[in-house]
């Protein structure tokens, strides 16, 4: 579990549009890396390229290498389905499967991969829900539909669903942007706990959040509309927020633009 990611000279395109220009950065295992930057700077796009989710969009393609413990996930022989099984993802808006109960939502990944052993599924369900700090709230209504939970609970359900397949890396695309402050706090606490076992990359618009949860922060920016987004700098979170080496980072963090 918990592998390291090395992004090497990654360029991302949507059809002819050059969306992200030459990103190189490393994510150490068992740590939280935050991607920050103004809208449209390509941080979500880079995140989605880390588990080959990017190519689900028609016309999208990636050039360069993304190494997971040294293995290129874009190598010709690699099955994107396997990559996504190893690198889980939590989305901006909670998206539990509406036709499934809470229990089935959590074990959906295993069930769809063909695991039938009821005992094992129940075990994984409890462990994942406990891992997502949701067990106490839902243990009496596991057979109720997942859509009946509150937004924050649904997002934790989605996190439980993502960790149920025991990925090596967890990607989070603005996981708190649709949640209230209390639910956000719950998720942030959870992220801090999860980093003991997982490598986490989180995209966030909330700079306080990046400062609170992450060990390393990457700042993305774009030169102008229609220009590709690029990585301005990446460093320890403390350094980025106290003494960044680039002027643009300082301007963004101090709220002078973006």
């Amino acid at each position: 579990m918990a592998k390291r990611i090395d992004i090497k000279d990654v360029n991302i395109y949507y059809g002819k549009f050059h969306a992200v220009d030459s990103v190189t950065l490393s994510v150490p295992p068992r740590s939280v890396t935050a991607f920050i930057g103004p809208s449209g700077c390509g941080k979500s796009t880079v995140l989605r390229s880390l588990n080959r989710m990017h190519e689900v969009t028609p016309g999208a393609r990636v050039e360069g290498q993304v190494l997971l413990d040294g293995e290129d996930i874009y190598a010709a022989t690699v099955d994107p389905v396997e990559v996504r099984r190893t690198i889980g993802m939590v989305f901006q808006r909670p998206n539990p499967f509406p036709t499934m109960s809470i229990r089935d939502n959590v074990v959906a990944g295993l069930k769809l991969a063909g695991v039938k052993n009821r005992r094992r599924l129940d075990e994984v369900c409890e462990r994942s829900l406990r891992g997502a700090n949701l067990w106490e709230e839902v243990k009496d209504r596991l057979d109720k539909p997942g859509g009946g939970l509150s937004g924050g609970q649904q997002q934790r359900l989605c996190i439980a669903r993502a960790i149920a397949v025991q990925p090596d890396v967890l990607l989070m695309d603005e996981p708190c942007s649709a949640l209230d402050p209390i639910s956000t706090l719950a998720i942030e606490d959870l992220i801090t706990e999860l980093k003991q076992d997982y490598t986490i990359v989180i995209v966030t618009h909330n700079m306080q959040q990046a400062a609170r949860v992450s060990d390393q922060t990457a700042f993305f920016n774009l030169a102008g509309v229609g220009q590709p987004g690029r990585l301005v700098e990446v460093d320890d979170t403390e350094k980025i927020f106290s003494n960044p080496s680039q002027k643009a980072t300082e301007d963004y963090i101090s709220g002078r633009f973006g």
Partner: peptide
């Protein structure tokens, strides 16, 4: 919603299985 398809892909579920088990039931 496309989010459901993506959620399923993100769990490492192949496309055909996503359609049969997630999209069609919905």
């Amino acid at each position: 919603p496309n989010e459901l398809r993506e959620a399923s892909y993100a769990l490492g579920v192949p496309k055909w299985k996503t359609i049969v088990k997630i999209v069609l039931p919905t």
